[in-house]
Write a protein that binds this DNA or RNA. Sequence first.
RNA 1: GCCCUUGUAGCUCAGGGGAUAGAGCAACUGCCUCCUAAGCAGUAGGUCGCAGGUUCGAAUCCUGCCGAGGGCGCCA
Length: 595
Amino acid sequence: MLGGRDGWMSLISHLGEVFGSAFQELGLDSEYGKVFPSQRPELGDFQCNGALAAARSARQPPSRLATTVAEMTGTDSRFQSVTAAGPGFVNIKLSDGFLAEWVEDMASDSHLGAPRVSRPLHIVVDYGGPNVAKPMHVGHLRSTIIGDALARIFARVGHRVTRDPHFGDWGTQMGMLIIGVRERFPQLAYFDCNARTFPARSPVSLADLAEMYPQVAAECAASPQLAEQARRATLELQEGRPGYRALWKQMVQVSLESQRADFARLGVEFDLWYGESTVADRVEGMIARMEESGLVTESEGATVVEVAMADDKAPLPPLMLCKSDGAALYATTDLATIEMRVDDLGADSILYVVDARQADHFRGVFRAARLTGLVPPAVGLEHIGFGTMNGPDGRPFRTREGGVVRLGDLIDQVTEAARRRLEENDMAKAYPESERRAVAEAVGLAALKFGDLSTHRASNYVFDPDRFVSFSGKTGPYLQYGVVRIRSLLARAARQGLAPGRLGPPAHPAERRLMLALTLMPEAINRAASERAPHHLAEYCYRVAVGFTRFYDQCHILSEPDPGRRDAWLGLADITGRVLSMLLDILGIDVPDRM
RNA sequence: GCCCUUGUAGCUCAGGGGAUAGAGCAACUGCCUCCUAAGCAGUAGGUCGCAGGUUCGAAUCCUGCCGAGGGCGCCA
């Protein structure tokens, strides 16, 4: 009944229409009717500031305009009161019946009132960013968590989403690894130009690769000769030298398995497992197509594309497509991947959830793709940059010894802390060991994910290990706890033969505040989607959880003598639980049955 | 040097041109014979880096300065 034709209309936009038409009747733009949650809850539930802005074109004092609008709308049965206040604010208080009815309608909507797009797009989300031989470390955490939340948000509002971690398997680090293996096992057939058959299994394990890579990288940095050999090996790999290809394939396989396991532990799954090498055979044709634009030139032996534009604030350097020795680079495979995603996958939009420090790289790549006509103008290309995770000293987060922190170790750390917290809880004594382990893992991961997701992605943030294992206050476990209590409550009610009933007009202030909080859910999702900023959703989720906990604390549901009120309260707990579960699912946070 | 990001409570962070800038942590005071205390109620804590500008109105937009982090062709 209250929903719009194309699905659900949020309460905020519904109110915006009511007040918009009031402004329209006065001959003013309906945009002035825009409504926001009130900043002064004691004065109203929502507020409309349009009178202040419209005063000039209306040629009357804002306070008089506000009074007029309040009088026009005040008699509406949806409102308990509409009052003008201050210099021209309009404070809106919903009638209790209308509020309850609205939340009840959300509960009966198949998407709980969550927004749905009218025109679904195919969005490719590129996140995670694993590389061959580099174990996942804390730097991958943000990309993975933020990217996964964004992918889930877009899918939730109705877009078609393709998740691709874009494996780093084709650049210079591959040449370095080949050199590294050759140094250790020079007798292997991979390095014999005449060999036709190669060992069936990788000569190095993932642990070997992880140990070897930093060593070789350091050696290459110190020795120009070795670096030249690595570049040479990279080129030969790309040109198809059989031994290198065979070794490369095995190293990729070894890395892939471990990285899949890391992602799986985070509860993250991808639709594709493409890498830079996937598009290797497109590069030549792509460069030929780009040359038609006339922007591809040669510079110091390398093939580059001019991407500078007259009105650039700072001159954008040319983008390198081929090194002087002919090898492909990061930018080359990125461009070929864009072409593949648009031509083969039919992407309408590609989002890159990658460290903010790569902003210049993406500016150049996107510019090149546009200027050379590689992508149609309608296709969106966006770099969703995020800040660095720093340690308490303000420098990138490291172990005490100065090494990078491995993702797996970090998860172990929070999981163990959750385990300790669980042991302190009397109730956990009855849990079987397998459940204790599962709960600790779910709680630890929730702390980790929510801690990251609640910070705006663009800013660097300080990772304080102590904070991530405290589990009290504004944390992932708090949100899980809210849902666990709701489920426990509903289960207990069911055992007493009670079931959630229709919502009634709120009988308690905490009940009313919770209902109001629930009506704001569509805006939280829309905002997170349009700003590509999951932290808005994390913030909102916490507000709903707080709203419930207070309601739960102040309204003792099962001992409520009035059966109608009791069932209505159970109904409110039920819808709150369903909304929170949906939001936590979007954030990638699992909820245990008990904790 | 140029460019990007950033500066809000002791600490970590939210904040959509609007009224009296909010959370959590830490500190202090209460609350488990009652649906899970990973909780709730309360106290205290602020020149929103500084200076101008735009606006009826600026933490929010613009400019400059200062501080922090980052980037700037043959790595990714």
